[in-house]
Design a protein around this nucleic acid. Structure first.
Length: 877
RNA sequence: GGGGGUGUAGCUCAGUUGGUUAGAGCGCAUGCUUGACAUGCAUGAGGUCAUAGGUUCGAGCCCUACCAUCCCCACCA
């Protein structure tokens, strides 16, 4: 093959992906001979396009999937999208608004038509984007939260929960978004510290000069007050309890009640109670049987209950007017500046209003308990483990889940009401008549379900639930669930309790959480900051492999990371390095009949690189198993760049360019062996480049995607030989270092003398390497005691003294200084070793190998010390 | 109010079960057209691992306190 000089991913990424698709490599078969390994995608919203968070999701999951697939599992990466009820509806409303249309104008059916068209467009686009990232999803199983399968699961679950009494309808205080005009769950409200005011109001006692002062942050709600509460133990107010107050502006008579909820120390110690507009007040209202007066409409304007003066006004305008009116009638005592936490809709950012409303709720306590147990008893394991604490924290304090939404885009609640007999029909299938009175006059509930209601079923709804399909039986429960820690509450927790409740099994064994991808300055990427990065643009510029590698490299599970162009460039440079190393190997192998490695005689350098490869295999496999993708990627980076390229390839050159045909063939054999295995190890991380190169290695067949992942082979570990060879490398480094220290150009050949006692054979075998890599004109051994006539530099390394005659470059005084510094360092090391070895505790308690190690080290340094002292003597005191 | 993260080289970050002389990338300095790669090669400078105690034969790692910084949950009107 003709390989380009530089790595150019555009030449092959799309082509390879098309081929993988065509060959059906992504398809996970229900092979009874294989063990299944399943990951379902965190389904991206169809609202728009993918961002770097999705890219990270996909890279992590795809890396694990490809790894397992190569290990022989039937690996299923199940793709899909989420209908994102509220988010999509907001987008479509916006889109219609541009054309001057409202939801009302187009009607429910018209609206849904637009929504489906939107889904087709953006859902398709997202799939295309994912393909660009190289993910090996089984597209034949592509799912959508509103497709037939998932919808059936939603109905099944809703009805089952209803029949078990775990889902109910009732008037409760909920979070209302006046922007989206729908109820929200607690999880969908974001709080922020907003500057506001504290308005202190005076409520007069009926037929008296007395009054009570209350404070509020939302004065407009006073129109719905139905009591004022004080703490029963508060002596200031004991005499007031039971008296009647006259609500200013409204004139309604309301009681003073006593309730523990009130904090004596806070404010005036008296609280106005508005059951319809505050969660705490609602509870107080229930305890005291207070009327609930709702003064606000769904769109955030005041209603008739607010009185003619305010009816129809927006809540914030009404607030101003009410404050003015209160001031005018003398009911306003004072206004204090006050910052407090205000809830905002997580989609449209409008200020959320707590409002009493009739909604559907899922009863959480019975569902939460087994879900907590599953994690507590390690049936599900979080990585990193600290997230289980966060999970417990949330699950233990969980309140009932408001699941109805006043939206059109979503799963319509499977409940019908009979206009004739008033009965409610909860059904998995659409009824045609009322089963109670046979009336045809039935209407379906107008509302849809929270998006997360269907997301919660994702690991099993996508596999066929409620039917016990073959897929369900084979692939469920899934194995790993990987997503960002920011959706633990929204998604992970809900999948856990849903999975346990409806399938009687935990939906996955492992939860692997990753952090948020931030911008270069550590800020969250957001539309308002305009600092978002489109992964496709990065792919376009650098290729998918570079993006994937840059997202994985140096990242620990659960930790946030920063995206930067520099990181992608570094990854791209690594790809280029892989590319060129491969090009080097393949070019040299061209026309050569490369023998299998098992048949050739290995040199010391060969054994060294094979040994390094084996430990790399070990490390990569181990760390992928622990979800430590960053460490695994780091090990590969070091192995390929430092060990393979900087050392081994350089070491090979003399054999490759030499005349010894056999030697050349055996070297190529090792080069191909190591390259092939390294590519296999790399493939899960960077699928394209590895496959592109793999096909050109002599002796390989087909795609690397379906090759077997390398297995550690203890026979190839060559621990002793590898260690011995490192002395040769040390000599090379030492000579280079000496040259650089005195400004001798690296290309200038120098004679190298070695004084060594033990490992002469190895050093002699390495003479050629030393000559080539250190720029030596020759390597000679000095007998002990022999000395040279020329001026020399010498340096002591482990097991050897390296002596280089550098003639005129030698500055005796400078060299003495260096030697003395070196001596000092070595003496320091001896001292350190001594103090350890003289410590009885260390000798007795530390593992034996460590103690032996320390002894050996001490010996080594003492030997070095003596040699350095001898050198100093030679230079003359 | 409760919970959690982070703090290691100029910058971005690794550092696994506590065990060699604490690492990488980028940046910096010096020198290299060494027949794969300047998206490269070699050499080097740069760290009292936030601070103070403690446990241990041994601490970047475990414990306690404290400082800084970020996040999540709760929502006292």
């Amino acid at each position: 093959m003709e390989m380009q000089k530089t790595y150019n991913p555009k030449d092959f990424e799309d082509r390879l992906y098309a081929e993988w698709m065509e060959k059906n490599y992504f398809r996970a078969e229900r092979d009874p001979a294989k063990i299944p390994f399943t990951i379902v995608i965190p389904p991206p919203n169809i609202t728009g396009q993918l961002h770097l968070g999705h890219a990270l999701d996909n890279t992590i999951i795809d890396t694990l999937i490809r790894f397992k697939r190569m290990q022989g599992y039937s690996a299923l990466y199940l793709p899909g999208c989420d209908h994102a009820s509220i988010a999509t509806e907001v987008k479509i409303v916006e889109e219609m608004k541009k054309k001057g249309l409202t939801k009302k104008d187009v009607g429910r059916d018209g609206f849904l038509e637009r929504a489906w068209a939107w889904k087709e467009k953006y859902g398709g686009r997202i799939v295309e984007q994912m393909k660009k990232m190289g993910v090996s999803c089984d597209w034949s199983r592509l799912a959508f939260t509103m497709d037939e399968r998932c919808s059936r699961a939603v109905r099944e679950v809703f009805v089952n929960l209803y029949e078990k009494g775990l889902i109910y309808r009732g008037d409760r205080i909920i979070n209302w978004c006046p922007g989206c005009k729908t109820a929200l769950s607690d999880a969908e409200v974001e709080y922020s510290e907003d500057a506001s005011h504290f308005w202190h109001l005076k409520y007069p006692v009926k037929d008296s000069d007395e009054y009570i002062v209350v404070a509020t942050t939302r004065p407009e709600t006073m129109l719905g007050d139905t009591a004022v509460a004080v703490n029963p133990a508060d002596e200031r107010y004991t005499h007031m309890v039971g008296k009647t107050l006259v609500l200013p502006l409204v004139g309604r008579e309301i009681p003073v009640i006593a309730d523990e909820y009130v904090d004596k120390e806070f404010g005036s110690g008296a609280v106005k109670i508005t059951p319809a507009h505050d969660p705490n007040d609602f509870e107080v209202g229930l305890r005291h049987d207070l009327p609930v007066i709702r003064v606000m409409n769904d769109d955030g304007t005041m209603n008739e209950e607010a009185g003619d003066a305010y009816c129809g006004m927006d809540r914030f305008a009404a607030r101003e007017k009410i404050v003015e009116d209160l001031k005018a009638c003398g009911a306003l005592v004072k206004i204090e500046p006050h910052t407090h936490n205000v809830g905002h809709c997580y989609r449209c950012k409008s200020t959320v209003e707590p409002i009493v409303s009739k909604q559907w709720f899922v009863k959480m306590a019975p569902l939460a308990k087994p879900a907590i147990d599953a994690v507590a008893r390690n049936k599900i394991k979080f990585t990193p483990s600290r997230f289980s604490k966060i999970y417990f924290n949330w699950m233990e304090g969980i309140k009932d889940w408001c699941v109805s939404r006043q939206l059109w885009w979503g799963h319509r609640i499977p409940v019908w009401y009979c206009d004739d007999c008033g009965e409610m029909i909860v059904s998995k299938t659409d009824p045609s008549e009322c089963p109670h009175c046979r009336s045809k006059n039935i209407r379906q509930d107008e509302d849809v379900l929270d998006t997360w209601f269907s997301s919660a079923l994702w690991p099993f709804s996508t596999l066929g639930y409620p039917d016990k399909t073959d897929d369900f039986n084979y692939f469920y429960p899934t194995d790993v669930l990987s997503c960002g820690y920011d959706i633990i509450f929204f998604w992970v927790a809900r999948m856990i309790f849903s999975g346990i409740e409806h399938t009687k099994k935990v939906p996955f064994r492992d939860v692997l959480l990753h952090g948020i991808v931030r911008d270069e300055q550590g800020r969250k990427m957001s539309k308002s900051l305009g600092n978002g990065i489109d992964p496709l643009e990065v792919v376009e510029e650098y290729g998918a492999d570079s993006l994937r590698f840059s997202l994985i490299q140096g990242v620990a599970p659960g930790n946030d990371s920063r995206y930067s162009k520099g990181k992608v460039e570094a990854a791209r440079n690594f790809m280029n390095k892989i590319w060129n190393a491969s090009r080097f190997v393949l070019m040299n192998a061209e026309g050569v009949n490369v023998p299998p490695m098992a048949t050739v005689k290995l040199s010391a350098a060969d054994k060294w690189i094979v040994s390094r490869l084996e430990s790399c295999i070990k490390e990569v496999t181990l760390n992928l198993g622990k979800f430590e993708l960053g460490i695994a990627a780091g090990a590969l980076y070091d192995f390929l760049w430092s060990d393979f390229c900087d050392w081994y390839i350089e070491l090979c050159k003399s054999a490759l360019y030499g005349d010894d045909v056999e030697k050349k063939a055996s070297t190529l054999s090792v080069l191909c062996f190591v390259l092939e295995n390294a590519l296999k190890l790399l493939h899960p991380f960077v699928p394209f480049i590895t496959d592109e190169i793999f096909r050109n290695i002599p002796g390989t067949q087909g795609s690397i995607m379906v090759a077997e992942f390398p297995r550690y082979n203890a026979k190839l570990a060559y621990k002793k030989e590898a260690k011995a060879f490192e002395t040769v490398m040390d000599v090379i480094k030492c000579v280079r270092n000496m040259k650089a220290n005195v400004g001798c150009p690296p290309s200038k050949k120098v004679k190298v003398y070695l004084a060594a006692a033990a490992n002469r054979r190895m050093l002699a075998a390495g003479a050629d390497a030393i000559a080539r890599l250190a720029g030596a004109s020759g390597v000679e051994f000095l007998e002990s005691g022999a000395s040279l006539q020329e001026k020399t530099f010498s340096q002591v390394i482990e097991g050897c003294t390296v002596i280089v005659p550098l003639g005129e470059l030698v500055d005796i005084e400078k060299e003495k200084v260096r030697l003395r510094q070196e001596l000092e360092r070595v003496i320091g090391e001896i001292g350190r070793a001594d103090s350890k070895l003289q410590n009885r505790g260390f000798i007795e308690k530390a593992p034996k190998n460590l103690v032996d190690n320390e002894r050996a080290k001490r010996e080594k340094f003492i030997e070095m010390k003596e040699k350095i002292e001898a050198q100093i003597r030679d230079l003359g005191e």
